[in-house]
Design a protein around this nucleic acid. Sequence first.
RNA 1: GGCGCUAUCGUCUAGUGGCCUAGGACGUCGCCCUCUCAAGGCGAAAACACGGGUUCGACUCCCGUUAGCGCUACCA
Length: 484
Amino acid sequence: MNPGDVRVRFAPSPTGFLHVGGLRTALFNYLFARNSGGKFILRIEDTDRARFVEGAVENLISTLKWAGLEYDEGPVVGGEYGPYIQSERLDIYGKHVEMLIESGAAYRCFCTPERLETMRKEQEKKKLQPKYDRTCLRLSPEEISSNISAGKPFVVRLRVPDDTVIKFSDVIRGEVEFSSERVDDQVLIKSDGYPTYHLANVVDDHHMRITHVIRGEEWLSSTPKHVLLYRAFGWDIPTFAHLPLLLNPDKSKLSKRQGDVAVEDYKEKGYLKEALVNFVALLGWNPGDEREIFSIAELEKEFSLEKVNKSGAVFNVEKLNWLNFQHLRKKPDAMVLAMLKEHLMKVSIEVSRFNDQYLLSVIAAMRERVTFVKDFTEKSPYFFAAPKSYDPGVVQKRWKPESAVYLKALAAEFSGLSDPTKNDYEAALHRTAESLGVGNGDIIHPLRLSVSGMGEGPGLFDILSIIGKEETVRRIESAVNELK
RNA sequence: GGCGCUAUCGUCUAGUGGCCUAGGACGUCGCCCUCUCAAGGCGAAAACACGGGUUCGACUCCCGUUAGCGCUACCA
């Protein structure tokens, strides 16, 4: 097979939002396809009508798009192996399952869910493995046709061969084998006529010419069923790669309850897609050297299945935050400006009050201090409005009885400046301190408090030159009044 | 319970028999820088689950134990 012939797919079921684990699976498929010059396909596995969620498909597609994982074939964009939505392929599965029944690789089962349930209970009580007892395998052709003509509902089950060992190899895990005794006669077609995952997945992967099945480890145990199906159809078996699971901090499979799992949640919290993708890529994969920060393009170039590791990875938000900081820092000013404006609108701050040059200087001042775009307003609200209150802790530490006097003198000094620069403010402050016979710090700290309301932030003189002389003087006066 | 997968610092990981006194990153702590907070620099604490083999030599190979996780549906 030529590298360019690689075809992989991401096959989510539309039961809600895209999960970060799903994003990771999608990403690895995408990266593998891009890296090998192959095709990345999106297929919707909507064979469970009970769990279908309205709008989930659209949401999946838009989230994938947001993350930058454009697919080559799939819903909306189409492709020559469609349709790419399983509910639109029902006739295909029906035809194939007929073939299986013909050849004896599958059989109809008329057992009711209730009977199955009591059977299972019985088996559990006897400490046996829950497994279909093949009652319907022993039905005569006459019984079967009379059941059918009587309109009895039925499912179609896979006839698992006895006494064989099913082996397959997995790129990530090596050789894996299961005894067929352990494999249940899996339902292939449900009584509502829809296929189960197992059937639909194999049929579609074959017809869509999928070369590599890259999916989560939770599928490893059902892979023997799939292998059996490929054999029953006489089809080539694709290469399997079962990815390690994403875990909660307590090491269980990543789930809601223990934090956010929807990609959308992270997007809304202000995470950059670059950071999320970078982070999730590093969960289970690494380039083998000591780099940590990757663009999507770099990942496409570097990714290989051989470097994917076997053990589950805890989704650790601390590192994601750091990566967000790193990626935000790398963004050009113009892009941060656009994001900042969007954020200001979102928090109802009148954007037109600030020109681009002003916002750009805020960005320059805060670059090293923001992890998220929202931090511009949360960590430095004083660039967008005069302080409404003063941090009590800082007041206690920095505001002395004589501060008001010093600041009045400073305000007078500042007022005399014309069109001051950052250095002019600094020089003026030094002059004031000297004539007062106090240290610079005796003025600097109360001044910072006055103009910002807090005790931390960019260089004080940067702040002053950004907000300007008038505003600075005004804020000093307010603080002096407020703090006496 | 059965079957399967996995097992290096708190977390993500490097490591494919000697380069390991086990490396990097996040986080934590300390120092430097400094008007504060960051950023940056320097430094520290922190791991090969356990027990047997194999070998001149095991983090690396094999077996077992233990632990965790996954699967065990007419869900995916």
